[in-house]
C-alpha cells in the first residue's frame, strides 16, 4: 500500500526533500477533467470539460462563481473544491461589506494558497485534493491564476490543469502571444481549441460536456443580451444550449462542419429504430454519449 515510509505523514520530508502527500494531492488534480484559462487585455475566460458518471447522471459542474468579479474552474476532488470556494466567497463578501471594495484578485487567491500551505505544516492534516484556475478582474485589469494544493498561486497568461492538460498547454504555449490583443470570440475559440486537445480519441466538444465562463465586457455576437451579469461584464457561465452558438462559430473558424461530427453510432441508430416500438416502455437515451474522459472516479471532476 505505502510507496515508502514517508507517505503516511504529511508533514515529514522524505530524504529527497519531498512531501509525498502533497505530491499525491497534485496527482488528484491531474485525475480531474481538464480546465483551461486564458486572458486578453480586456477579458479572462475559463473553459472546462465536464464529466458525467453515466447516461442517467447529469454532468458535474466545474465552474463556480465566487463574486461578481471572481470565478473559478476546478479539477480534482469536488468536495474539497466546495469547501475552498465557500471560503473564497466569504473572503470576497467580507471585502465588499467592510470596505465596499471588490477584493483584489491576487489577495483572494493568496488566502486559499495560505490555507493549503497550512495543511502541509500541521500534523494529522491532509492537503486539499483540488486545483483551481481563478479568473478575476480588479482595478489592475483581468487576471488568471492557478491555485494548487501545494500552497502556491501563480499568475498566467494562459494555463491548463487536469487530465491531459499537457496537450492543451502545448496549444496555449504556441499561441499565447496573440491572446493579449484578441477579442472575446477569438479568445474563446483559442480556449476551445486548447480544450479539444485534451479530449480522448473519438470524443468531441458538445453542448453537454463543455462550459465556458467569462469576465469582461459582453460581446453581443456571442452572448445572451438579457443576462444581468453579461451586461455588467461580471462573471457568467455559459453551458448547454447557451453555448451552441459558441461551438458552432468555433467549428466554423476551424473550417469544420458547423453541426459538429455526427456521432450517432451504429448502436444508437439501432436504438432509434427499435425505439419506435418500445418508446412507451423504455426511456430514451438522455444525451449524447460523452463519457468520463479520464478516470471513472465519482468525486474526481
Amino acid at each position: 500500500m505505502f510507496r515508502n515510509s514517508y507517505d503516511s505523514d504529511n508533514t515529514t520530508f522524505s530524504p529527497q526533500g519531498k512531501l509525498h502527500q502533497v505530491e499525491y494531492a497534485l496527482e488528484a488534480v491531474k485525475q480531474g477533467s481538464a480546465a483551461i484559462g486564458l486572458r486578453s487585455k480586456t477579458h479572462a475566460v475559463l473553459l472546462t470539460l465536464k464529466r458525467s458518471t453515466g447516461e442517467l447522471a447529469t454532468y458535474q459542474k466545474k465552474l463556480i462563481r465566487i463574486d461578481d468579479h471572481v470565478g473559478i474552474a476546478i479539477a480534482g476532488l469536488t468536495s474539497d473544491a466546495r469547501v475552498l470556494s465557500n471560503s473564497m466567497r466569504q473572503q470576497a463578501m467580507q471585502s465588499r461589506m467592510l470596505y465596499g471594495r471588490p477584493i483584489p484578485v491576487a489577495r483572494i487567491v493568496q488566502t486559499i494558497a495560505d490555507k493549503a500551505q497550512n495543511n502541509t505544516q500541521i500534523y494529522g492534516r491532509r492537503p486539499y485534493g483540488v486545483g483551481f484556475l481563478v479568473i478575476g478582474e480588479d482595478e489592475t485589469g483581468p487576471h488568471l491564476y492557478e491555485f494548487s494544493p501545494s500552497g502556491t498561486a501563480f499568475e498566467y497568461y494562459a494555463h491548463s490543469i487536469g487530465a491531459r492538460s499537457q496537450s492543451a498547454k502545448t496549444y496555449l504555449e504556441k499561441n499565447f502571444e496573440s491572446f493579449e490583443t484578441s477579442d472575446l470570440p477569438a479568445l474563446i475559440n483559442h480556449g476551445l481549441s486548447a480544450l479539444a486537445d485534451t479530449l480522448q480519441q473519438d470524443k468531441h466538444l458538445t453542448t453537454l460536456n463543455t462550459s465556458i465562463a467569462i469576465i469582461g465586457p459582453a460581446s453581443a455576437e456571442i452572448e445572451q443580451a438579457s443576462s444581468g451579469a453579461a451586461r455588467r461584464g461580471y462573471f457568467r457561465v455559459w453551458e448547454n444550449d447557451d453555448i451552441d452558438g459558441l461551438l458552432r462559430s468555433w467549428r466554423r473558424s476551424r473550417g469544420e462542419p458547423e453541426d459538429g461530427p455526427q456521432e450517432e453510432t451504429a448502436a444508437e441508430a439501432e436504438v432509434a429504430a427499435a425505439g419506435e416500438e418500445a418508446a412507451a416502455a423504455a426511456p430514451a437515451p438522455v444525451a449524447e454519449t460523452e463519457q468520463a474522459a479520464g478516470g471513472d472516479d465519482v468525486e474526481m471532476q
Binding site: L98, Y99, G100, R101, A106, R107, E139, T140
Partner: peptide, 15 residues
C-alpha cells in the same frame, strides 16, 4: 506585492 491601488476615500469611509 500586487500593485493594486490603495483603499479609496469611499473604501475608508465604508470601513
Amino acid at each position: 506585492t500586487d500593485a493594486h491601488p490603495p483603499l479609496s476615500p469611499n473604501n475608508l469611509y465604508t470601513f
